[in-house]
């Protein structure tokens, strides 16, 4: 049995090599499909990650009106802090002042081309108001507390992370819907191409199949080399896609770190998962393609006796 297995695997590899142009075409289409599918899933995963991160952050930025510490200040910082502390759910130890200059510096640090931005802004070098960072004692009363903060006379606006999380959720849904359609379409195309590659191989090996049948080869024996060919195509496509997506992901995450405080899912955490998924998806689509094309052939054709 092992002898046969070795022989059939060799035959499959030989066939993939003989039809190398079609094999390459199949690999190419499958790679496109897998890269797009992988990217869509990774974007979605990262959006989820960002959403969770944001929701976990127990920090709210409270931006103040110009009436505080400005030229026409009618409230001092002490007044504001007293007001904040008056809200019972605000943790008094968490209250931290962020001056407009510090805030602006932190914002500018995230950009590569600071000079250009400063040039655009011109004299109005700082557009940010003074702010406070506060944390809540009880997260379940989050929305009520935010409303209380907003109602304070000194507060210009409250930046709450949940708002961003909701926006991200919307984007995530769109990515998922568009992704599913693109991936579905590409999957059909790649299955079509793989099916045709295998059909071509079968046409080339029609005589061989006829002889196999006449000497009593089982359907599995006939199917095996084609299955190997499909798996080879799938595995090659899976590995190439894995390499491409890994490269794109590394490049994209380093860019994301610069502009988003949330960061991205670390590559080390998804490496194995990514590799196995790509290999799995490649192998499944490759062998499915073989199965579809040869199953029909085994049933319909392959006459042993000539007319």
């Amino acid at each position: 049995m092992f002898n046969n297995f070795k022989y059939l695997v060799r035959e499959g590899l030989r066939s993939a090599w003989i039809n190398r142009l079609m094999t390459l075409a199949s690999i190419g289409v499958l790679v496109c499909c897998l890269v797009l599918m992988g990217s869509a899933i990774l974007v979605s995963l990262n959006l989820n990650y960002a959403m969770e991160w944001l929701e976990d952050q127990n920090v709210v930025m409270v931006f103040l009106k110009d009436t505080v510490s400005g030229s026409d200040a009618s409230y001092t910082r002490e007044d504001v802090e007293r007001m904040l502390k008056s809200i019972d759910n605000v943790d008094p130890n968490s209250i931290e002042f962020v001056s407009r200059d510090d805030g602006f510096k932190a914002l500018m640090d995230r950009f590569d081309k600071k000079e250009e931005i400063e040039e655009i802004l011109g004299d109005t070098t700082n557009i940010l108001p003074n702010a406070y960072k506060v944390s809540f004692k009880d997260q379940t009363r989050y929305e009520v507390t935010v409303e209380q903060l907003k109602s304070l006379d000194v507060v210009y606006r409250v930046r709450e992370n949940r708002e961003y999380a909701k926006q991200l959720e919307g984007i995530n849904k769109t990515v998922a819907v568009v992704g599913v359609w693109i991936v579905g379409l590409l999957l059909v195309v790649s299955l079509f191409i793989i099916t045709n590659t295998i059909k071509l191989t079968m046409y080339v090996r029609k005589l061989e199949i006829t002889i196999m049948k006449s000497v009593g080869a089982t359907d599995w024996f006939i199917r095996m080399p084609f299955l190997v060919e499909g798996i080879v195509i799938g595995m090659a496509a899976g590995l190439i896609s894995f390499g491409l997506v890994s490269y794109i992901y590394s490049a994209a995450t380093s860019a994301i770190y610069k502009v988003m405080t949330t960061g991205a899912l670390p590559y080390s955490r998804i490496f194995l998962w990514l590799l196995l998924s790509f290999l799995g998806a490649g192998i499944v689509s490759g062998s499915l393609g073989s199965f579809v094309s040869i199953g029909k052939y085994l049933k319909d054709d392959g006459g042993v006796i000539g007319e």
Binding site: L207, T210, I211, K213, S214, V215, G216, A217, T218, D219, F221, V304, G306
Partner: peptide, 16 residues
């Protein structure tokens, strides 16, 4: 069917 065919030997006009 394959196992049945193994009990037969087939010779073709076009050799195959």
């Amino acid at each position: 069917i394959p196992y049945y065919r193994r009990t037969l030997g087939m010779v073709f006009q076009d050799f195959r």
